[in-house]
């Protein structure tokens, strides 16, 4: 659940996959002022949305906000630029969700905040 101000702040990362590539090689999707190992120099990059699955699971017991779409796969993905991210897998038969499978990120609705709250969009992955 993200209220509208929290949600709006993350739009560049969630909608357009704007990321940072630090000189030490670390690639971050969330904004960082410094890499985990202390590098401050980076260039802004936009992730292509292509990557592969490092691990996955099928969630059968989600939190309430996702209970109507259960069961659903979630995966840790490494993009071709080296960024790591966690995303739901959509539009993919479960048997195709495997470690090493190639994926592409798409723009989807992540959740709705009840009947009257904002609609949260973001990235999900499709196995290609």
């Amino acid at each position: 659940m993200a209220n509208s101000q929290r949600y709006t702040r993350e739009i560049p990362h969630r909608f357009r996959l704007e990321a940072q590539k630090f000189e030490d090689g670390f690639v971050s999707l969330p904004n960082r002022y410094i890499s985990p190992s202390g590098c401050k120099n980076f260039e802004k990059i936009t992730l292509s949305g292509k990557g592969k699955i490092l691990s996955y699971t099928i969630i059968s017991t989600p939190s309430d906000q996702f209970k109507l779409i259960k069961p659903f796969p979630v995966a840790i993905i490494e993009t071709e630029e080296g960024a790591r991210l966690t995303a739901m897998i959509t539009d993919t038969p479960f048997e195709k969700v495997k470690i090493g499978a190639n994926v592409e990120l798409v723009f989807r609705k992540i959740m709705e905040e009840g009947h009257s709250g904002i609609i949260n969009y973001g990235y999900k992955a499709i196995v290609i």
Partner: peptide
């Protein structure tokens, strides 16, 4: 539409 699709996600694609 899939459960995570609406006219906007369709329009974006």
């Amino acid at each position: 539409p899939g459960r995570d699709e609406d006219s906007l996600t369709i329009a974006v694609q």
